[in-house]
Simulated scan of single mutants.
Amino acid sequence: MMTRKSILTLLLCTITFFGCGVDNETKTIRLGHGLDVSHSVHKAMVKMGEDLLERSGGRLKLEIYPSQQLGTERECLELLQIGSLDMTKVSVGVLENFAPKTRVLGLPFLFRDRQHSFNVLDGPIGQMLLNEGEKYWLKGLGYYDAGSRSFYTMNKPIEKPADLEGEKIRVMESVTAVNMVKALGGSPTPISWGELYTSLQQGVVDGAENNPPSFYLSRHYEVCKYYSLDEHTVLPDVLLIGTYVWNKLSQQEQMWLSQAVKESVKYQRILWAEAEAEALREVQKAGVVVSRPNKTLFAEKVQGIYESYKDDAEIYPLIKKIQETQ
């Protein structure tokens, strides 16, 4: 069900956006996302806009609205579906509510390491999952690196699954994320990213889980002084365009945009590696205790999630293909 805020956002954006705005033969593609302007994803989008303008000879222009100016990730996806916003970036954990097959990427400890995840996402499986959203009016264009997600908490470190018992942990609006925290013994609490800092301050939740740059740039380290790098999920960000807008672009325009996206993905991955290292350095300087618990203890506790998919004719074979990818 849509909230009052999301309805107002839809009304505002329906007035503001009409697919690709045209001004003096320049098509303006409007991209809304929830991250801060200092985030590597936003910086990669800025580069994408510059690249797109150059490739198209000024015919395609990217206009970026960061920091949830146009709503939460879920609201931005809804805007894409009705053609009131052109592009957005969301975590695949949120996308699974719109394109169900993509939930496979949210399974804990699915990938052996970062390179394995790149091999899957950049290959035929990743492309198939990008295409999965088209039947829901959402076309995936590429994956931005969002590293590994780990637990951070206010009152104690999470060194083993038993430490999560009784802890209220913020998760995305993702059934897979909810099931994972439950399997580990915690109490999953879906809260939007924009409301999380206040929720931590007020004790609505005891902690959350995310990657190092998000933990740092959100300033959640000011409240949570324990960061346990169990790296339970490698959950990419997905760049999407509404099919309503994509189908209005010419074949040449689609090619320009696709090429600009490809280059921005390469650029973002370089920025991400730098941002991840910086984030860990800075939060430790601020007094956060960073630990690396035994991942095997956590992986063993979530095996029941994999068992639950054994009768799923779509997801289970996909899990096997991902695990077999070199």
Rank of each mutant, 00 (worst) to 15 (best):
315 I>C: 03
290 V>L: 07
26 T>V: 08
177 A>C: 07
199 S>E: 02
66 P>N: 01
171 V>A: 04
183 A>M: 06
16 T>K: 13
1 M>T: 13
15 I>F: 13
122 D>G: 12
145 D>I: 02
307 E>L: 14
277 A>P: 01
269 R>G: 09
43 K>D: 05
290 V>F: 13
317 P>Q: 04
255 M>F: 11
240 L>Y: 04
310 K>T: 11
168 K>N: 06
166 G>S: 08
230 D>A: 15
66 P>L: 06
194 G>V: 00
218 S>E: 03
46 V>N: 08
287 G>C: 03
29 I>H: 12
228 S>F: 06
141 L>C: 06
317 P>H: 10
106 G>N: 12
235 L>V: 08
162 A>H: 08
130 L>N: 01
2 M>S: 15
14 T>G: 06
241 I>W: 11
267 Y>K: 11
42 H>S: 08
214 S>L: 10
59 R>C: 00
238 V>C: 12
25 E>I: 00
54 E>H: 08
139 K>S: 05
263 E>S: 14
245 V>Q: 10
284 Q>T: 11
24 N>T: 05
142 G>W: 04
204 V>R: 08
33 H>Y: 07
137 W>T: 08
180 M>P: 02
125 I>M: 09
145 D>V: 00
125 I>L: 10
272 W>Y: 15
242 G>N: 02
154 M>F: 04
228 S>W: 07
166 G>P: 01
269 R>D: 15
77 L>N: 09
169 I>V: 13
288 V>P: 04
222 E>V: 01
270 I>V: 15
108 P>Q: 03
238 V>K: 05
34 G>C: 05
198 T>Y: 09
106 G>K: 04
20 C>E: 14
84 S>R: 13
119 N>E: 14
106 G>P: 03
179 N>F: 06
161 P>N: 03
35 L>H: 10
174 S>Y: 06
121 L>M: 06
109 F>L: 02
267 Y>N: 13
293 P>L: 03
67 S>Y: 07
199 S>W: 02
49 G>P: 04
288 V>K: 09
246 W>T: 00
128 M>P: 00
212 P>N: 07
187 S>P: 00
280 L>N: 00
249 L>P: 11
216 Y>W: 15
118 F>T: 11
4 R>H: 10
307 E>W: 11
290 V>C: 11
285 K>C: 08
242 G>L: 02
20 C>P: 09
37 V>A: 11
119 N>C: 01
254 Q>T: 01
4 R>K: 10
103 R>D: 05
235 L>H: 03
178 V>T: 14
34 G>L: 00
17 F>V: 14
279 A>W: 09
173 E>I: 02
63 E>I: 00
224 C>Y: 04
